[in-house]
Amino acid sequence: MTAELLDIDSERPRLLGLAYQMLGTVADAEDAVQEAVSRFYALPEQERATVHRPGAWLMRTTGRVALDVLKPAHRKRELYVGEWLPEPIPGRGEELDDASPESYAVLQTEVSYGLMVVLERLSPAERAVFVLRESFGLGFSEISEVVLRSPGACRQLASEARKKIQAGKATRGSEEDGHTDLVRAFAQACATGDIAELTRLLDPSVELRSDGGGIVSAARRPVITAENVAKMLVGLRQKFPEAGVELVTLAGGEQGALFRLGEEVGGLLACGVVEGAIEQVWIMRNPEKLRLWQ
């Protein structure tokens, strides 16, 4: 293996992390990185020899590829059947028998699932700038080469993105005090169908969103208020009394709950916690976004 190939392989985790944070699914991230690597090797040999930092070149190119994919994807998600949620990624320590080495690389991200959800509120350009700046530390001059805007415009995009992120109350990991204990109690209440305990743990204005992708049943619109969310979760328990519930760790370090129907994964639940109460509940049921958990 050449030094050039070794250098590219060492950069793959960062490239996949970038593409995942921009696109929200592992499959799209892998495709974007593969396209960037293909473009690198498509360069004339003499031109490729002038690239002294292949990692930096690939980072910029992966960002551009992901941005090009995100622009039409942003519009397509408006036509998605039901709610579109990002693919939840297993954290360190979770067993992933069928995952590819490339998929494991994505686990290096320390971005919480809640932040991944809030990133969907950003425009494609805002998302690209925010991820490149906040997660990967690129300067605005380098970011400008990705989004094809001036450094000043990129700085303004970063400011707007941060405002939207702060409004979404997302953390970059399991930073919220009591998050783990709340999720554990919540998972237990879901497993037993304890509607009173569920209601107690939920913020009165909690919002639940679920993603079935039009493949399996899921609420197509957000469910709002603690009473309605608790009733829905108890109803799901009654519909699937045989489902097993186990606590798992997501990539950002926060706890989630995995629902198993026999040998199959039926869904994954994650929560957004603010000031000691569960404000957001996200349920992934789309089997295409649960492959890493099977």
Rank of each mutant, 00 (worst) to 15 (best):
A3D: 08
D9W: 10
S10D: 05
R12W: 02
L15W: 13
L23Q: 10
G24I: 06
T25I: 03
A29L: 05
E35V: 05
V37G: 05
Y41L: 00
A42D: 09
P44N: 11
E45M: 06
E45L: 11
Q46T: 12
Q46C: 00
Q46Y: 01
R48Q: 11
V51L: 06
H52D: 14
R53K: 15
L58P: 05
M59E: 02
R60A: 09
R60N: 06
G63P: 06
V65W: 03
L67I: 15
L70T: 11
A73I: 03
L79Q: 15
G82V: 04
L85D: 02
P86A: 10
E87D: 05
E87W: 06
E87H: 05
E87F: 01
P88R: 10
S103K: 07
S103N: 13
A105I: 10
Y113G: 06
L115T: 13
L119V: 08
P124C: 09
E126Q: 15
R127K: 14
R127F: 01
L132W: 02
F136S: 10
F136M: 06
E145Q: 14
V146G: 02
R149H: 02
C154S: 08
R155Y: 02
A158V: 00
A170W: 03
S174G: 09
E175P: 01
E176G: 03
E176M: 11
D177V: 10
H179T: 11
L182I: 08
A185R: 15
A185S: 15
A185V: 08
D194L: 04
T199G: 10
L202T: 04
P204T: 07
V206L: 11
R209V: 14
S210D: 07
S210R: 10
V216E: 07
R220V: 09
T225V: 11
N228W: 04
A230M: 03
K231I: 10
K231R: 15
K231M: 14
L233K: 00
G235P: 06
L236S: 02
L236H: 00
K239D: 12
E242K: 03
V245K: 07
T249S: 00
G253W: 04
E254V: 07
E254D: 05
L261H: 13
V265C: 09
V265S: 09
G267N: 05
G276K: 07
I278M: 09
E279P: 10
Q280C: 02
R285K: 15
N286F: 04
R291M: 04
Q294L: 14
